[in-house]
């Protein structure tokens, strides 16, 4: 289908009407499933509880509660992304060196087929006071610890959930890396660290950036895990949106928080893609 399309596009270059026609499916999709929902969210954000047009929701967002919430959401999303990257990059690197790398990759991906809620409940059992983790700690002589409902458990479970999404793009980038480049770098006298820093890392940076995007953005709006694993001691923007819609029935305020969440995501997306281009350019110069 892709090749068909390309050939068609070439043929249609002179034919504007057909070109416009070829846009129909894509624009239809974007209007129906991207623009319309976002438009609705923005629309709802301008109404108060009694259905009057207002900017109060936006004013309300800048009170201490929601600003603090935003800061803490960013902090935890940062931690989750950072640790995911820390674990995923070496994992992806060693995966590419393995004989049956596709099989190993599959084994890492498979847990992401299991429902998120099920995995979360499994962790409640594992990390409980009488769970296997504490039993182990006790036999080792460390003694029982409160693991559930701490920052540690929250970041740990989230990182576990996000790791496959971080590994995939990095693995692909590493896999595509031409081994001749590494040989060349070693031949020219660079040691392993310099080779990594000056050759491997810059060339796989795009994979890292896609990984950061697919982890950081959803991590900003995690909600269920905040309650089940962190006992609401960690609160994210996602929790606040859920509460506004389901409990307070203040769709206006819920939408306003969602609008800000979308804005944050756009900024992150712009930051990571803009740098990408810059990097590619400077890479060429080198």
């Amino acid at each position: 289908m892709m090749r068909d399309l390309k050939r068609m596009v070439r043929r249609m270059k002179t034919n504007r009407a057909s070109l416009r026609l070829s846009m129909v499916p894509y624009s239809l999709w974007i209007i129906l499933f991207v623009i319309a929902p976002i438009g609705l969210i923005v629309y709802y954000s301008f109404f108060d509880l009694s259905g009057n047009f207002t900017f109060d929701n936006y004013k309300n967002f800048f009170t201490s509660v929601y600003l603090k919430l935003t800061v803490s959401s960013f902090w935890y999303a940062f931690l989750i992304t950072f640790f995911s990257l820390l674990i995923s990059y070496p994992t992806a690197y060693f995966l590419t060196k393995l004989k049956h790398k596709q099989l190993w990759l599959l084994l890492i991906i498979i847990p992401s087929w299991i429902n998120l809620l099920l995995k979360t409940y499994a962790f409640i059992g594992l990390m409980g006071l009488y769970g296997p983790v504490n039993a182990l700690l006790e036999t080792v002589g460390i003694g029982k610890q409160q693991i559930l409902f701490t920052d540690f458990s929250f970041v740990f479970v989230s990182v576990y959930i996000f790791i496959p999404f971080m590994i995939l793009p990095i693995f692909n980038a590493l896999d595509k890396l031409n081994p001749a480049l590494i040989d060349a770098s070693r031949d020219l006298g660079a040691n392993a660290w310099t080779t990594f820093r000056r050759v491997i890392w810059p060339l796989t940076l795009n994979g890292v950036k896609s990984g950061i995007q697919v982890v950081f953005i959803p991590a900003l709006s995690l909600f269920m895990i905040t309650r089940l694993i962190a006992g609401n001691k960690v609160i994210t923007l996602g929790t606040a949106i859920e509460q506004q819609f389901l409990v307070t029935q203040n769709w206006g305020m819920g939408s306003t928080i969602a609008v800000f969440l979308i804005l944050f995501m756009v900024v992150i997306l712009l930051l990571t893609t803009a740098n990408e281009r810059g990097m590619a350019g400077s890479g060429k110069k080198r």
Partner: peptide
């Protein structure tokens, strides 16, 4: 809404 905002403040 007020109750819930105070509750959110407490949880944070």
């Amino acid at each position: 809404g007020t109750y819930n905002e105070l509750f959110l403040e407490f949880k944070m």
